[in-house]
Structure formats: C-alpha cells, structure tokens
C-alpha cells in the first residue's frame, strides 16, 4: 500500500509533496506519542485513559465518576516528596506518603492477556514505595484485571473498598494488596484476589479490621516478609488453592478468631510456613493444606504457635494433604 502511494507521487513527479506528507505523518506520530499528563486534582466526570499516562501528584476519582483504563495503557507515577505539596490531603491515616490514585468513584482497569495495563514508577531507578497506591476509599465495583503493578507502597489498598483483582502481576512493592475497614465509611472492605502472580514484594496480601479476603489460585512467591498477613477480624475470609512458598513467612496471624485456611500449598517458606504473632490467642484451623512433607515433626518445625509460646493459640494442621494440592495453581 505504502509502496503504491510512494510510486504514485514519484511517477507524478511530486517528490517534494511526498516528502512533505512523510514529514507530516512523522510529526503526527510524535504528537500522538506524548503522554497524558495528569496534575494534582480531582476527576469528576467519566474519563478514559489510554497510551501513556504520567501522574504528577495525588489524583482523585470523585464519587459518581468512573475511570476506565484501556488495555496496553502505561500509567506512571512521579516520585513526589512524601506528604509534600503534591498531596491532596494532610490526613496520614488513610493516605500514603507519595502520589496515589484515590478512588472514591470507580476504577475499571481491564487489560488483556496480550495487552496488560501497567501501573508503575516514573523514576529511572525505581524502588518500592515510589508511589502510594490505587487507594480505594468507600467504593465498590472496582476491577483490576490483567494489570502489571510495581514499585508502589501498597499497589492496591482498600480502605472500606470492594475490588476484584484478577490475572495480574504485582511485584516489587511494599505490599501487593492490603485492606481494612474504616469506621466512618459505610462500605465494608472486600477483596477478591484470583489468579495473580504476587512476587518479590515486601509482603503479599495484608488484611484485617473486619475486611474480607477471598484469595484463590494465586502464586504468592518470594515476598520478603510474608505471603499473607491476616489481622484482627476476617473470619469470613476464604483462602484456598494458593501456592504460598519461598516467602520470609508463609502466613502470619494477629488477633484473628475462628480463622480457617484450607487447601493451599504452604511450603518452603524461609522462616515459618505459618506463624502466630503476639496477640494471636485463638486457634487457627489449618487442616488440609500441603506443607511440603508428610513428616509431622518437620511440618511442626515451620509452625510457630502455642508449643513455642504459651500465650499463643494452636495451629491445627491435622488431616494435612499427602501431596501438593493440584488445584493450587494459576488457572490460565
């Protein structure tokens, strides 16, 4: 096609016109490649992002507005001064130190297998916590699907927010996904985390204060401190078919009650496969998991509970799986 047009111009003797057209197209492509610059402020109407987006400070999606992020979009956050002039709020309880995407309305970030949506740092030498979070405040109906999130403080954090996180790769952040309920917000935190690779973060999934976590078919691997950290509340959570391996600690518990965790592969974590922190006084029902061995003594060696410290509860690990749980893997 291009050859035919070129020949037409050359045959007609309009070589200069042809060069002009080429220059015009090149200029257009440069204009198109410019990133969308998003300054500190609030998005109050439905908005769609595509191409490259550079976030320069805190950006909030207001209640009633939806931010749609198209497949293949690359969203980069500038590394701003912690709690400096780039922040929208002075409150440090529900905000992160550096630039964040605060969602009070809704975010729909649906990439595809071939065109992931990227959320990352704009810094040339990126580090964990270069940017804050996709911070969901009192909101529901949010979707993060086929995304690649890196170098955040907490890549996705729900303060009384509801979100589904699927098919994504979350890495090199402080914590991959966190949540808690906030008294003043009516929405109850609920995160569905399915079929994600959560790797090389400080911690994988952190939840508590009554939040519900439904975590299935995730690979939680090589997170420095923990794979999953379950804090106070969260008894209705479901954690199944996950591979929780090679983290500092596999699963940690603090002040939970009636907690159950079944049908996961929890093995080869560096310090403990499961540990109870100070204040975890209730027992945890951790039957039917695969611990990497059928030798009970070896299983126990990597569990810290009442046997190590009298004030703690007991990890009940009877009826342990005799082999790796086959369903515990990424589904596609």
């Amino acid at each position: 096609m291009f050859t035919r047009i070129a020949r037409h111009f050359l045959v007609q003797g309009s070589f200069l016109t042809f060069l002009g057209l080429i220059s015009f197209l090149l200029l257009c492509s440069q204009v198109i490649a410019q990133p969308i610059i998003v300054e500190k402020g609030t998005i109050s109407v439905d908005t769609t992002w595509s191409g490259e987006v550079l976030i320069k400070a805190d950006v909030e999606v207001a209640k009633g507005a939806t931010l749609t992020v198209m497949p293949g979009t690359v969203v980069k956050f500038e590394k701003i001064e912690p709690f400096g002039p780039g922040k929208l709020y002075e409150d440090k309880t529900h905000q992160f130190p550096r630039a964040e995407l605060i969602i009070r309305g809704k975010i729909i970030a649906k990439g595809t297998k071939d065109k992931l949506i990227t959320f990352t740092s704009a810094d040339p030498s990126p580090k964990p916590a270069d940017w804050g979070a996709i911070n969901l405040l009192d909101t529901e109906g949010n979707i993060i699907d086929y995304c690649d999130l890196s170098y955040a403080h907490t890549a996705i954090h729900a303060h009384s927010g509801k979100v589904t996180v699927t098919n994504s790769y979350i890495h090199d952040s402080g914590v991959a996904v966190g949540q808690k309920n906030v008294k003043e917000f009516p929405t109850k935190a609920e995160i569905i985390v399915h079929n994600n690779l959560i790797s090389t973060n400080g911690g994988g999934l952190l939840f508590g204060k009554g939040g519900i976590l439904i975590a299935s078919n995730n690979n939680l691997i090589n997170n420095e401190l923990f794979g999953i950290y379950c804090k106070k509340g969260g008894a209705s959570s479901v954690i199944k078919f996950n591979n929780i391996t090679k983290n500092g600690k596999g699963v940690m518990f603090f002040a939970t009650e009636k907690f159950q965790i079944h049908n996961n592969n929890i093995n080869d974590n560096t310090e403990y496969n499961m540990t109870m922190l100070e204040g975890q006084e209730a027992d945890v029902d951790a039957r039917n998991n695969w611990w990497g061995t059928t030798d009970e003594k070896k299983i126990k060696e990597l569990i810290r509970d009442k046997d190590e410290e009298a004030e703690l509860g007991t990890v009940i690990f009877t009826d342990y799986a005799k082999a790796s749980i086959a369903e515990a893997c990424l589904t596609k």
């Binding site: 964990p128 916590a129 403080h153 907490t154 402080g174 914590v175 966190g178 973060n201 400080g202 911690g203 952190l206 420095e224 401190l225 950290y229």
Partner: peptide, 13 residues
Amino acid sequence: FQLLASPSYSCVG
C-alpha cells in the same frame, strides 16, 4: 548503622 538506616522494605504495613 548506615546499612540499618535503609531497610529493604521500610514501607510494609
């Protein structure tokens, strides 16, 4: 001391 002042993950939880 200088090494300790910059932990690898000072942003977890």
